[in-house]
Computed example of a mutant assay.
Amino acid sequence: MRIGELAERAKTSTRTLRYYESRGLLPARRDANGYRAYDEEDLRLLRQIRTLRDFGFELEETRPFVDCLRAGHPSGDACPASLAVYRRKLAELDGLIGRLTDVRDQVARQLAGAEAGAEAGAAPKCEMTG
């Protein structure tokens, strides 16, 4: 299939496909006429990339999954390098969740103080800016 059809089937743009090709994530094959040529396996690679990107993975983080599929594995997460990326991403997410929980707790304390001050008729003091 040509680049336009692949882009349509993958629900992306031809520009994105050319970018992936320049980054080595998508093979750069040409047919006899010089047109880019793709197959169902390329669509499978793109779907893997898209799923991971939707989960918040950076483009370069998708490389081990793509390499795993290219190596003939049934799924992109069947290789040790892919599992290592999953572990790093989970650690990153755990860190973000921890920071968000801290911010949430601070906002909840600020709200409680503001509500208590409002009930007493005093102007609330913002402790988060200090």
Rank of each mutant, 00 (worst) to 15 (best):
D42G: 00
Y86F: 13
G56P: 08
C126M: 06
C79G: 01
F55L: 15
L59I: 13
D39T: 02
R23W: 09
G34Q: 07
G4P: 01
D102Q: 07
L43N: 03
R47T: 07
E92I: 04
S82E: 08
G117K: 05
G121W: 11
Y38A: 05
D54K: 12
D77A: 15
R2C: 02
Y38E: 07
A28H: 10
A10Q: 00
M1G: 04
S22N: 08
D77M: 11
E119C: 06
A10H: 01
V103W: 13
E92M: 12
D102Y: 07
E8P: 02
L43S: 06
C68Q: 08
F65C: 04
A28V: 11
G113C: 08
L17P: 01
A37K: 10
F55R: 05
R53A: 10
L83K: 14
T51I: 11
K11V: 09
V66M: 06
R99A: 13
I97S: 14
T51E: 12
C79H: 03
K125V: 14
E40Y: 08
G117Y: 09
P64F: 05
A120F: 03
R88V: 05
V66T: 04
M1P: 00
D39Y: 03
G117V: 06
Q110N: 07
T12V: 07
R104C: 06
P27A: 06
L43F: 03
L96M: 15
M1K: 08
P80S: 10
L90I: 13
S75P: 03
L6P: 00
A71S: 15
G34N: 10
D94C: 06
A114C: 13
D42C: 00
